[in-house]
Amino acid sequence: MLVRENQKAVVVVDNAKVTYRVYASGKAVQENVDSRVKRQGNLRTVEAVKGVSMVAYEGDVIGVIGTNGSGKTSLMKAISGLTPLDGGKIFASSRPSFLGVGAAMLKELSGEKNIILGGLAMGYSRSEIKEKLDEIIEFSGLREFIDLPMRTYSAGMSERLKFSIAASREHDILIIDEALAVGDSKFRKRSAERMKELAQNAGCVFLVSHSLKTILETCNRAIWLDNGVLKADGEAYEVCKAYADEVGADLDD
């Protein structure tokens, strides 16, 4: 699986490691010898990704599965270059775009101003973002509330707005983190369609999701992260099946 002939590799992950150093006070509930959290005074180091290697090829739509805290988001952020690596290397044909929830926003400002700011940070010019503004508001379905400050939005509403901004652009290598969990069922359907469009135009897509059904519907391949280690990498159905068997999940869920 690792090296395929005759296909163009677009992302190469070579023994990537991500470690967080966090200052924390208080006592751990129990000292665990193989815990990924190591303590040294108040400084704890968390080995979020412990040496993952993989290759993504052109046209791959890769589902990323694993339990909470298994290192999925850390690995994806490292692939997009947003989180620096502590070991190993990651190569890509162009800068991967991370399309995740939790993008930055200024809470005191209106939704509209946040769209403009997010768009400019993504590299739109002032006139481009003015053109796209209406389309993004329409997609988010938040037209009624667009001039209210974002601190008044519910969690779901602000996630919708962030997704709408990020999804307004085409990307070569696209990393989608949990985006389908966002919003109500109507918005979820609209964003699933938009993601399929984006995936068709992109060279390669990573999709992080807890919904095995979504992974099976959209991906040709899946990787399973467990405790910061790559536990499986292969055809989507097989990996999802193995994962479902181990954690007792349902493939239709």
Binding site: A9, S80, G81, L82, P84, L85, I90, F91, S93, S94
Partner: peptide, 12 residues
């Protein structure tokens, strides 16, 4: 080597 053969750049 594979990354170099495919002309990939280091991310970040």
């Amino acid at each position: 080597d594979l990354a170099a053969a495919n002309g990939l750049e280091r991310v970040g």
